[in-house]
Design a protein around this nucleic acid. Structure first.
Lengths: 186, 204
DNA sequence: ACATTACTTTCCAAAGC
DNA sequence: GCTTTAAAAAGTAATGT
């Protein structure tokens, strides 16, 4: 049987950073092509990069949030592009601003169908939320690593809330061993 | 000092009034849903616990009251769907669902997933189908759920499909639309669940 | 009857209401 | 709490042909 860890795929990485300079978003919106800025709706300016594909939220304070990248390397690459675009607009940007990964979303496959009803009852109903009338996934909150997993009947799962790619691997290991202990896998 | 004393009385009165309002709302909604008195009592107990645990802060009294009633129906094994409950509440369905999950989590209510069979008697009755159909629908649910088909599926849609299939097998056919209307799901959902269930039952 | 689009859930940061 | 951004999972729903 394939190790479920081998099926882990990073789907989205969220990171925050800052250029160390305040910004006049109104003028940035004018000069930066493709920028979406509607302060009435949201205080951040939206700028999308094509390669790697991502969306950056740029704030008046100079802080930036980047979402949608498929790896931590892509987040850095996307933000490098954003920094250069701002420099093109004659805006001072710190040499290499600290980039903090805030959330990593991964998907994986346990390779077996899951009886979510049995899991919900078997895992004690404590860290679990399973309301198929509202959502088909079973929500499983882990303490270590501090992540949230969404388990589906197909055996596929989503792990979110992690700060490092290793968090997802640890989470998959713990989920698999817990389900095996309870005889709920297969 | 006198002011503080008056204020305490005032807040105490306000709290009493709010509790009375919540309980009368639970009563009104329970009547509208046609659930027995025992359910209102269970809902009232849950609401008082939520009040004691300070779960109402930042939420509407109506929302918490409705969520408690939804939980009580499930605990008493006569579930009403969120859609049905939202029809007698002035709180929107999405908010009732969120509040219910919050209350259930905070009060550690051991809420088991709803068994689709619990919807069968009521739906069958509304459709004026026989006990034979009811028994067949229950059998379909048991057999197919055992094979793992229930995971992730909504209980109402699952029950609706089983009733539709049973009505065909017992020569008391109801259309997908008729069953969909009483269960408040779409025909597409019945069609999808029906196909899987029939397949798993080996009827085709 | 079928497809397409869209919404449900989880996570996280940002600034402001 | 909300607003916006991104992404996956699978079920359900609305709309269109």
């Amino acid at each position: 049987m394939v190790d479920p860890k081998e099926t882990i795929n990073i789907e989205n990485v969220v990171a925050s950073t800052g250029i160390g300079q305040e910004l006049d978003l109104q003028s940035v919106a004018m000069d930066l092509e493709g920028a979406d800025y509607d302060p009435e709706q949201f205080p951040g300016l939206v700028y999308r990069t094509q390669e790697p594909k991502s969306a950056a939220l740029i704030f008046r304070s100079g802080k930036i949030v980047c979402t949608g990248a498929k790896s931590t390397d892509d987040v850095h690459e996307s933000l490098r592009i954003v920094f250069d675009k701002l420099r093109d607009l004659n805006i001072q940007v710190d040499d290499d601003p600290e980039i903090v990964v805030q959330n990593i979303v991964t998907s994986a496959d346990l390779g077996r169908n899951l009886n979510l009803n049995a899991i919900a009852i078997g895992l004690g109903l404590e860290n679990i939320e399973y309301e198929p009338e509202q959502f088909p996934g079973l929500v499983y909150r882990l303490d270590d690593p501090d992540v949230v997993a969404l388990l589906f009947g197909s055996g596929k799962l989503v792990i979110t809330g992690g700060k490092q790619p290793e968090d997802a691997e640890e989470a998959v290991d713990k989920i698999v061993s817990r389900l095996e202990d309870l005889g709920l896998l297969e | 000092r006198l002011r503080k004393w008056q204020e305490r009385i005032r807040t105490k009165d306000a709290g009493e009034r709010n509790l009375q309002f919540a309980l009368s709302e639970i009563d009104r909604m329970a009547s509208a849903l046609g659930v027995p008195r025992s359910v209102r009592e269970v809902a009232s107990v849950i609401y008082r616990r939520a009040l004691d645990e300070d779960l109402i802060r930042g939420r509407s009294i109506e929302g918490v009251a409705t969520a408690c009633l939804y939980a009580a129906c499930r605990q008493e094994d006569i579930p009403r769907s969120l859609e049905e409950v939202s029809e007698v509440s002035r709180v929107e369905q999405k908010e009732i669902g969120r509040t219910y999950r919050y209350v259930a989590q905070e009060l550690s209510l051991k809420m088991e997933p709803v068994d689709p069979k619990q919807y069968v008697p009521r739906f069958v009755s509304e459709l004026e189908l026989s006990e034979e159909v009811q028994a067949k629908a229950n059998e379909i649910i048991d057999v197919t759920a055992e094979k793992g088909l229930l995971s992730g599926k909504s209980p109402t849609g699952y029950a609706a499909a089983a009733i539709y299939a049973a009505s065909l097998l017992c020569n008391e056919k109801k259309t997908q639309r008729e069953v969909a209307d009483v269960a408040q799901v779409t025909e597409v959902t019945i069609r999808n669940r029906y196909q899987e269930q029939i397949e798993a039952m080996g009827i085709h």
